[in-house]
Nucleic acid binder design. Structure first.
Lengths: 257, 257
DNA sequence: TTTCTAATGTGTGTCAAGTACACAATAGAT
DNA sequence: ATCTATTGTGTACTTGACACACATTAGAAA
């Protein structure tokens, strides 16, 4: 079974393919220009942006649906993706009313169309490598791009709450997941890794203690190459050592600050 | 709108009152006889037990539905209740087939009855004071009682997984929540509090370090009264000081081990 | 009454981790 | 050759976790 090919079909018979009343929304985080970014979609004919989302196919596990949605919007798979909260307020998808969108598209769904009824949304957050993502619009949107976490546009529904909770969860779990491994390119410098942590935690960290701590985890490998970044000493490149990381995980060693 | 009064009505028209395809299940934890307990229901005419659960009314927030379900099964409200995971496997409610139950009850729901279709369940866990609970059966069950976490009966559906994940979440969040405040009676001794932590974590803790740590949190108040428990020195009673606890929370002081 | 036992209240020392801070090395601009 | 901004590395201080010792005491047993 493939994704619906038109909005009309989606409205009229989407419920045959998808479980109604339950949706998935993904806060997809990336890191670029020393800023934490989140991938957003601009809905057609509606003023406001929203998280990439979708519905669960009848025979599809929720976690796989989330992977599929992420794959469809970014082109990548096999990334860090985690459920963090399920949003169950009755009015969460009532405002704004999608009928505005509908009217502009020349389709006339009934008042009780499955998409207008109450929908509970399972929130996932993902950590992806910025450069590997190819932002791709979906059926209902006409733009898909990264937004700086500090300068978010107007968001639809409860998606501002969703992003906030996702970030809060990410901060709490920062100590338990190899954040750098998922958000940074293969090779990176210690200042870059530190900047990532500082951005997520939104507070400065001591450069020397950070380096000491990260190296003590024994999951990084220093390369011979250095990065040239200006008229001063050049930092070494590092990369994650998957084997050592797995060992550290086994041993229960935690990551981060 | 009240709860359905008969199983027949529930099967036939429950979807008018409740959001279909989404349910709630609650792992309700109590502490008694130095053992961690969980409240379970014995389903009528089916071999096996399950967690207290239910559906969400059309206009009801999911969190309130969970509170309502907990209130209906225990008689108490305003307790610590937290969403911890949403279970979204397509086959999670297929086995055992409820038709066995149905047949024994002289009702004949159709094959595509709303209760037989795929249902995603939002998992909550609750911490309640054992002595205040009045276990109460629901429409589909004929027994409701506490089970020792170390001696669980045969569980239906994926409810063993649910309990396991709830306990795991409880352990992880032990440091951030006033577990004793919710699971113990108003006044308690330090050995009792320690036993609670040891039971949840399933490992022994050093008596002296435990006491030192708990007192350093400055959320307990020692009473003048002592508890007489045998031919040896009597332990003091303690109680939670709500004001001090709120202060500690403000200050970001964490609890537990 | 005395003695004994098992559990409780309190304290001390060690070690690891977190935190604050100092100084030498260096790549490129001037 | 000199200067500057940034990086690599090291040291002292403080805090908390953890291991362990000893005096106190309520009731049972003598």
């Amino acid at each position: 079974m493939n994704a619906p090919t038109s909005i009309k079909e989606f409205f009229e018979s989407g419920y045959r393919q998808f479980l109604p009343h339950v949706s998935i929304d993904c806060a997809i985080f990336g890191f670029h220009d020393n800023q934490l970014k989140v991938l957003l979609l601009k809905m057609k004919n509606v003023e406001g942006w929203c998280l990439p989302g979708g519905f669960i196919q009848w025979a599809e596990p929720a976690n796989e649906a989330a992977q599929r949605i992420l794959q469809e919007r970014t082109g990548i798979s096999q990334v860090f993706l985690q459920q963090y909260y399920t949003f169950g307020e009755p009015e969460r998808n009532k405002e704004p009313n999608l009928k505005d969108l509908i009217d502009s598209l020349n389709i006339e769904p009934a008042e009780d169309n499955w998409l207008f009824r109450r929908t509970i949304s399972i929130g996932y957050y993902a950590l992806v490598e910025f450069s590997k993502v190819t932002p791709t619009v979906d059926l209902l949107s006409d733009e898909c791009c990264w937004w700086d976490m500090h300068e978010l546009p107007k968001l639809l529904f409860d998606h501002d709450l969703m992003i906030g909770q996702a970030l809060q969860t990410l901060r709490m779990q920062l100590n338990f997941h190899p954040v750098g491994y998922n958000l940074l390119p293969e090779k990176f410098t210690m200042p870059e890794l530190q900047k990532l942590y500082e951005t997520i935690l939104d507070r400065p960290l001591d450069r020397r203690n950070f380096q000491k701590k990260m190296l003590s985890l024994r999951i990084l490998e220093r390369m011979d190459e250095r990065k040239s970044v200006g008229p001063h000493k050049s930092p070494y490149y590092y990369r994650f050592d998957k084997n050592k990381y797995d060992q550290a995980l086994q041993a229960g060693i935690l990551l981060g600050f």
